[in-house]
């Protein structure tokens, strides 16, 4: 089990992370979402032991990963850059990883290479970007780690490679009790695969909920009133405007859903209908910031 407790980090005088707490149970996929520059990569690099927290602790199975990095036999980190190991060929990497990780499964690695049709006798620099990303993922899962940290794994990949990668991650998690912590901007991916949604805003954890919980605490509605949006509604703290076209407003309600809808009905709308909601809508209304009504 991964436990991030009260982690703080300041870089160049800016507080990048503030009192971050996350707990990740075995067998769970957690999606870390947040806007650019909110500290997602910094948090993942602290969890991987690359950066030290100024305060707080990261432990895996009750062992502090910064004090006893040997526990990272069970943790692997795949950075967002595909530039690492570029000067190696596949055989050299296998040899290296076999020497690093006690449980590295060479047979399994090569079976995955065959399955994804990746060339085995080449240097990594000759691979395309998608192949490199897929390769690093395969390598990481072949270590038989219990926690895999993926920083933007599908960034810049074509839809087919992306689908393959996501499918592969879901398969791996369903086969054994491993945890995956994945940071991504592609919310539809997180929505499809994550059990837990960790939203991060300005270095703080905004919310940690399951995708279902997140969806049930939000409601997306479209309303049209005779004139503009009544002030009574506009001033509600739990209502965000997602978009406005003339008198047609698309609103996001966070919490107290029934009560808020009743209040809207009392203002005699010309139209009030519920819209299907995606994680992206929750992301924009929670982490977007600019369009808050009040």
């Amino acid at each position: 089990m991964l436990k991030v407790s009260n982690v703080n980090k300041t870089i160049d005088g800016n507080q990048v992370l503030e009192n971050v707490d996350i707990t990740l149970q075995p067998g769970m996929i957690a999606g870390l979402v947040g806007r650019n520059g909110v500290g997602k990569s910094t948090l993942l690099r602290i969890i991987a032991g690359i950066l030290d927290p100024d305060e707080g602790e990261v432990s895996f199975n009750e062992i502090d990963i910064h004090k006893e990095p040997e526990i990272k036999q069970k943790i692997t980190y795949v950075p967002d850059s595909t530039e690492i190991l570029k000067s190696y060929n596949v055989k050299e990497i296998v040899k290296l990883y076999d020497a690093i990780y006690e449980d590295f499964d060479v047979m399994y690695f090569y079976s995955l290479m065959d399955r994804f049709k990746l060339p085995k006798n080449k240097k990594l620099r000759t691979y395309s970007k998608g192949m490199k990303a897929l390769f690093l993922m395969i390598l990481s899962f072949s270590t038989k780690a219990d926690l895999i940290i993926l920083d933007e794994p599908t960034n810049g990949l074509d839809p087919i490679v992306k689908r393959n990668i996501l499918q592969f991650i879901i398969e791996e998690v369903s086969e054994r009790q491993l945890s995956v912590l994945i940071s991504s901007h592609h919310l539809e991916e997180v929505e499809k695969m994550a059990d837990l949604l960790v939203m991060i805003k300005e270095g703080r954890i905004e919310s940690t909920t399951s995708i279902e919980e997140a969806k049930s605490s939000f409601r997306k509605v479209q309303v049209v009133y005779t004139h503009s949006l009544p002030e009574k509604i506009a001033h509600l703290h739990n209502v965000n405007i997602l978009s406005q076209t003339g008198r047609v407003y698309t609103l996001m309600i966070k919490g107290n859903i029934e009560e808020t809808i009743n209040k809207m009905q009392q203002e005699h709308p010309l139209l009030l209908e519920e819209l299907p909601m995606t994680l992206e809508d929750i992301f924009i209304s929670t982490l977007g910031g600019e369009s808050h009504v009040s």
Partner: peptide
């Protein structure tokens, strides 16, 4: 300079 520290420091070894 090449950011390979991200690989080396994420490995299960003491600094």
């Amino acid at each position: 300079s090449t950011h390979s520290t991200d690989l080396t420091f994420s490995l299960p070894f003491k600094r």
